[in-house]
Amino acid sequence: CKPMSYEEKRQLSLDINKLPGEKLGRVVHIIQSREPSLKNSNPDEIEIDFETLKPSTLRELERYVTS
């Protein structure tokens, strides 16, 4: 899986911020299912740190927000 450039992460962040509330739950689910360290975090307060997410997680999020 190809790592994301800074610009791609920035765009992904903007795209996620534009999602309606009902789609954000899926974003949280994708992150929690792929990032063991965030599995028990509160979905309402999850802070997405794009620098610490795996490339595969970032690509999955990218696919979701652009679908």
Rank of each mutant, 00 (worst) to 15 (best):
P3N: 05
P55C: 07
I46M: 12
H29Q: 15
G25F: 10
E62K: 11
C1N: 10
R63C: 08
M4A: 00
L58F: 02
K18M: 03
E7F: 02
T66P: 07
P3F: 02
K9R: 09
L38Y: 14
C1V: 08
V27I: 12
L53T: 11
E8I: 05
L24Y: 15
S67H: 10
F50R: 05
P43G: 10
H29P: 01
K54G: 08
E60Y: 08
L53G: 03
L14E: 14
I48D: 01
V28M: 15
H29K: 12
I16A: 00
S5G: 05
Y6C: 13
K2V: 10
L53F: 06
C1A: 10
S37Q: 10
L19F: 01
P43D: 10
G21L: 11
S67A: 14
S33M: 11
Y6T: 14
V65H: 05
V28L: 14
Q32W: 02
E7D: 13
E7Y: 02
K9S: 01
C1S: 14
I16W: 02
I31M: 05
E47M: 12
D15E: 14
E62L: 04
Q11I: 05
E60K: 08
G21H: 15
K54N: 09
K2M: 03
S41Q: 11
S56M: 05
S41N: 11
Y64M: 00
D49S: 07
E47W: 05
V65G: 06
K23S: 14
D49Y: 00
P36Y: 01
S5R: 03
K54R: 11
S33T: 09
N40L: 13
D49A: 04
V28H: 14
M4Q: 04
L19A: 01
I31H: 03
L61V: 14
G25H: 15
G25P: 08
E35Y: 07
P55E: 14
K23Q: 15
R59S: 03
N40G: 12
V65N: 09
P43S: 12
S33K: 10
L14I: 14
N17C: 06
L38C: 05
L24D: 12
R10N: 05
Y6V: 08
I16R: 01
E51F: 01
V28N: 08
I16E: 03
K2R: 12
Q32D: 05
V28T: 11
E51I: 06
L12F: 00
S5Q: 00
Y64C: 09
K2A: 04
R26P: 09
S5A: 00
K2L: 03
S67R: 10
L19H: 03
I46A: 07
L24H: 10
E47N: 11
F50C: 10
E45W: 03
S5W: 00
L61A: 07
K23Y: 15
S33G: 07
M4S: 00
H29Y: 02
Y64T: 04
N42I: 13
H29C: 00
L19E: 03
R59H: 04
K18C: 05
M4R: 01
S41R: 14
P3L: 05
K54M: 14
S37V: 09
K18A: 12
K2F: 01
S56K: 06
S41G: 11
L53S: 04
E51T: 08
E45D: 13
I31F: 05
D15G: 11
S37N: 13
I48G: 01
G25M: 15
V27H: 03
H29M: 03
D44M: 13
D44F: 08
P20Q: 14
Y64P: 13
I30Q: 03
N42A: 11
K9L: 11
Q11V: 01
I48N: 07
K39F: 08
K9Q: 03
M4E: 02
R26V: 09
Q11C: 07
L14F: 11
Q32N: 13
R63W: 02
S33R: 06
P3D: 09
N40P: 10
E45H: 15
K18S: 10
L58E: 05
R26D: 15
Y6M: 11
I31A: 05
E7L: 05
S37P: 06
T57P: 02
E7T: 05
Q11G: 03
L61P: 06
K54Y: 01
T52I: 06
S33L: 07
S56C: 07
K9C: 00
F50I: 11
S67M: 07
R63D: 10
L12M: 02
D44E: 14
E22Q: 07
P3K: 10
F50E: 10
E22T: 06
M4N: 00
E8T: 00
F50M: 13
V65E: 10
S5C: 02
K54E: 10
I48E: 02
R34K: 11
V27E: 01
K23D: 15
P36T: 05
R34C: 12
I48H: 02
I46T: 12
K23V: 13
E51G: 05
E45I: 11
P20C: 13
Y6N: 14
K54S: 14
L61Q: 09
V27K: 02
L14H: 12
K54H: 07
E7Q: 09
Y64W: 04
S56V: 04
I46P: 07
E35Q: 02
T52M: 13
N40M: 11
N40I: 11
L53A: 02
H29A: 13
I30V: 02
L53K: 06
V27F: 03
G25N: 14
L38H: 12
L58G: 08
D15R: 13
I48Q: 06
K54C: 10
Y6L: 12
F50A: 08
S33W: 00
E45Y: 05
E22C: 11
I16Y: 01
I30E: 05
K54Q: 15
I30R: 02
N42W: 08
K18H: 04
P55K: 06
K54V: 01
K2N: 13
L61R: 07
R26F: 05
P55L: 08
S13V: 06
R63Q: 05
K23R: 10
Q32G: 04
D44P: 08
R63P: 01
D44Y: 07
S37G: 12
G21Y: 14
E47T: 11
P43H: 09
E51V: 02
E8V: 01
N17F: 03
L61K: 09
E22A: 07
K9F: 07
P3V: 03
E45Q: 08
T66F: 07
L61G: 06
T57S: 02
R59W: 12
N17I: 02
Q32I: 05
P20S: 15
P20T: 13
E8G: 00
T66Y: 15
N42D: 10
E45S: 10
P43E: 12
V28S: 13
R63T: 13
L61M: 10
N42G: 09
P55N: 10
R10L: 07
S5K: 04
D44G: 10
E35H: 02
P20V: 10
H29S: 13
L61Y: 02
L38D: 04
L38S: 04
H29E: 15
T52G: 11
S56D: 11
E35R: 01
I30N: 05
F50S: 06
V65A: 08
K18G: 07
S13Q: 14
E47Y: 03
L58N: 08
E7R: 06
I46R: 12
G21I: 11
K54D: 05
